[in-house]
């Protein structure tokens, strides 16, 4: 009845009219179209689920790569921080060493003795004996019996010596003994080491007036330590009614826990004990 051409043309016109009509209709009823809400009710949750999932996956994906780079950056920063910390620590150590060495140098300038500086490299493994190893030996002119000091006072004396190292017996070792005098009263005695980490001043007669805080110095009579080197201060005095001597505790000036550098006196007072080595 109609040609094929006429049918196509009519269909196109009908579609245009339908489209225009629908657009006009929907424009006038925006927001209250029932079937649209039903679609939203059913489709939107799915949309949301998919959107959330895709966002989640996208986030994971992005964060994964981000985390990888963050982890790398974190590693790099940690490494840099580690280096900075190590450097800072090194500077601080150098600062402390500088301070100690300046102090030693100042002391060397003020002392008339010929001295050599040495570093403590090891300590006595025992709790009951007190000795340290220093990094100077025979090749540096050290001999058995030489006094070892620091600016604060007497540290000990050389007990053993090898070509490059020496063992220093500290004054608070029980085998150590120094002929000493109390600076204020000139009372003489022997400073001996004790296992407690302190020393005792022995053989001081009861008649002498010794007080807590009195300074104890070397007498120089033992032929090992030069006269007048500080040893420690009196920390306790016990005068018993019986007996000839007082019981006097002496706390050394030297903090042996912090002993790192020492000075060895190379020209101590001449004595048979030293010249005999």
């Amino acid at each position: 009845m109609f040609s094929r051409k006429t049918v196509i043309l009519g269909s196109i016109i009908a579609c245009i009219i339908l489209t225009v009509s629908l657009l006009s209709f929907s424009r006038s009823r925006y927001g209250s179209f029932g079937p649209g809400r039903v679609a939203i009710i059913f489709i939107a949750p799915l949309q949301k689920t998919i959107a959330t999932s895709s966002k989640f996956i996208k986030n994971i994906w992005n964060h994964y790569f981000s985390l990888v780079s963050t982890a790398k950056e974190n590693d790099r920063l940690k490494k840099a921080l580690g280096y900075a910390d190590a450097e800072k620590n090194q500077w601080r150590e150098m600062e402390f060493a500088n301070y100690r060495l300046r102090k030693l140098l100042q002391f060397v300038k003020t002392t008339s003795n010929q001295v050599i500086a040495a570093e403590v490299t090891g300590r006595d493994p025992s709790s009951w004996f007190k000795a340290v190893i220093i990094d100077k030996g025979k090749s540096d002119g050290l001999k058995k019996g030489m006094p070892v000091i620091i600016p604060e006072g007497i540290a000990g004396h050389i007990a053993e010596v090898t070509s490059d190292y020496a063992k220093v017996l500290l004054i608070f070792d029980q085998n150590s003994a120094i002929d000493a005098i109390v600076q204020r009263t000139r009372a003489r005695g022997i400073v001996k080491g004790e296992t407690t980490g302190r020393c005792v001043l022995k053989y001081v007669l009861q008649k002498h007036d010794i007080r807590v805080g009195d300074v104890v110095v070397s007498s120089g009579l033992d032929g090992v330590f030069p006269k007048g080197l500080p040893i420690g201060y009196v920390s306790n005095v016990v005068k018993r009614t019986s007996g000839l001597f007082q019981e006097i505790k002496v706390t050394p000036y030297v903090d042996f826990d912090k002993l790192e550098e020492v000075l060895v006196i190379l020209n101590p007072p001449e004595h048979d004990f030293i010249s005999g080595q």
Binding site: D124, P125, S126, F129, L169
Partner: peptide, 13 residues
């Protein structure tokens, strides 16, 4: 070894 490094009398350890 310990006797050599310690302040003890030699032979104690």
């Amino acid at each position: 070894i310990v006797d050599s490094f310690s302040g003890s009398y030699f032979g104690v350890y």
